[in-house]
Design a binder for these strands. Structure first.
Lengths: 290, 290
DNA sequence: GATTATTTCTGATATTAGTCAGATATCCTT
DNA sequence: AAGGATATCTGACTAATATCAGAAATAATC
């Protein structure tokens, strides 16, 4: 049985699924085009130009769809204060209610899919893997507060993975957990890799007097092998330069050979132990050009 | 991060994917409706009534789409000899060529998706898991020749799994490999579980003089937990009844505890060793009512 | 054999989606 | 300040999709 047969089967299965979702959307009595626009606006895509690009719509069609939603009282379209040519759409109260109904429909469908498999964790992992593969070009790296729930989410996965891979386990309380303030501007930063809003990786820069430390570099299993680590490390270095931190250090562990190999590959120099944290046994530094 | 966010992301990713596939289909200069009908016919859905149901089309629209394809010379629509009201569509030679082109387009896209992830095995496994979950209601169990490539495919997976799970490995040549003839009517049968044409499980009945043996019960990892084993075992028992084999036996191994538990659960009685095959160490039998 | 149901087909019509050309207002660059 | 680029909007048009009503042929049922 060749691989293509499996992909064809997958394509047919999800095509049906998408068709079912679309027709359930039509049950709300609005053509699919309008529904798509309404949902995109509800999801924060208010900028009409971006909206048009995201939905690949002709400007004429877009304009008419907006007029339609406007006359239904679901949206208002206002001039962009920063650019008189552009316009920005936002939901009215009625529009928000309608958007919430679409979200409810979509969530009900999602719950239904989830209920179709006994191993929901495996199903979610499979979905993540596929969604990441399909949207790999669109992973964006954004700064984020280290206490943001999405950041906490990444860190929990990170700690859990360390606990699983270190022989003696891992207790974050025994490690030198950086203060959140050290990972916020102007001292440092915390970066999140987002794929369609879902966090799939993180990395932190912890500011210090003599040097800055790179911490908490983690990539979701579903997103490994896509070159995301390089993107994150480059973003961290760029952030360090912006903050005037040109002397970087980090520590890691031999139990994470792919991390050790990665730092070597990315031009880090291995150095002697520079702290007394009980977990790391490998230490690196890198000096940046201004 | 809750599960629904992950599913929504998956939905968006595959919706885009489906959209891309659809628009690549449009590159062949035929509206999507016609293309869908042509493909359904090519995949064996010739019966116009079933076609209409499968694609959820109005009878008027269906009729016009068929006329369109007919006037393009891609299909011929003939009366159903068994029911004068019904009609049956089939591809002409030109239609088959056109259908093959669509398959090629779809395969090219499939190959492209596959190339987007470094771990293609994991990606395929994830696709299988999802496709199986989405189409679980539509798994069909069909008899099949034991030498059919799809059967060989299942058996290879089966042997590989035994090799991985038995302490000393597994060599099919040391085991009593049933002759293919014993697993064909009228002596026995070989059943395949198909999900949209892809084999996701198998089971064999090997005919014998005193009793028939159930062999080669295997479920693809992606399809486990869906109750497929019960379906297969019930189908095997039904086949045994049809063949007049009311005394069934099987052997298995303690290294496969879920199999042992399953046979107990399905009403099999554990008995003493009844053969000298080196691999099994657990033996079962079941007597069927006629 | 009459009645009812089913299947397909045709005609009429409506809605949705997609395309193109040009008008207008604004922004950007020089 | 002028010219070119960009964003939106409107009008005119085409194609595709969807819906409805009824005709014709056949099957199923009583």
């Amino acid at each position: 049985m060749d691989a293509l047969a499996h992909i064809r089967r997958f394509n047919r299965a999800v095509t049906r699924q998408v068709g079912a979702l679309n027709s359930s959307f039509l049950d709300r009595g609005r053509p699919l085009g309008s529904a798509r626009v309404l949902n995109a606006i509800g999801r924060g895509q208010g900028d009409v130009a971006k909206l048009r690009q995201a939905l690949a719509l002709d400007s004429g069609l877009m304009s008419r769809l907006l007029r339609g939603l406007e006359s239904e009282g679901l949206i208002v379209v206002e001039d962009d204060p920063e650019d008189g040519r552009r316009r920005i759409a936002r939901l009215t109260e009625a529009g928000q209610a309608e958007f919430a109904e679409y979200e409810r429909l979509s969530d009900a469908q999602a719950a239904d899919i989830l209920s179709r498999h006994p191993d929901q964790t495996a199903l979610l992992a499979a979905m993540d893997l596929i969604a990441t593969a399909l949207t790999r070009a669109e992973i964006e790296i954004v700064p984020c507060d280290p206490l943001d729930p999405r950041a906490r989410d990444c860190l929990q996965h990170y700690y859990a993975e360390l606990a699983a891979r270190f022989e003696g386990g891992f207790d974050v309380n025994l490690s030198k957990d950086p203060e959140a303030d050290d990972m916020r501007p102007p001292r440092g930063t915390f970066l999140l890799a987002l794929s369609d809003g879902v966090p799939v990786g993180c990395a932190a820069l912890k500011g210090g007097a003599d040097y800055a430390e790179v911490k908490r570099v983690w990539i979701a299993p579903a997103a490994r092998g896509l070159g995301l680590a390089r993107q994150l490390m480059e973003a961290i270095e760029a952030a360090a330069r912006d903050l005037g931190q040109l002397h970087l250090r980090l520590d890691t562990n031999s139990a994470l050979p792919e991390a050790v190999a990665m730092y070597h590959r990315f031009g880090w120099d291995e150095i002697d132990r520079f702290n007394d944290d009980p977990y790391p046994d490998r230490f690196f530094e890198k000096r940046l050009n201004p």
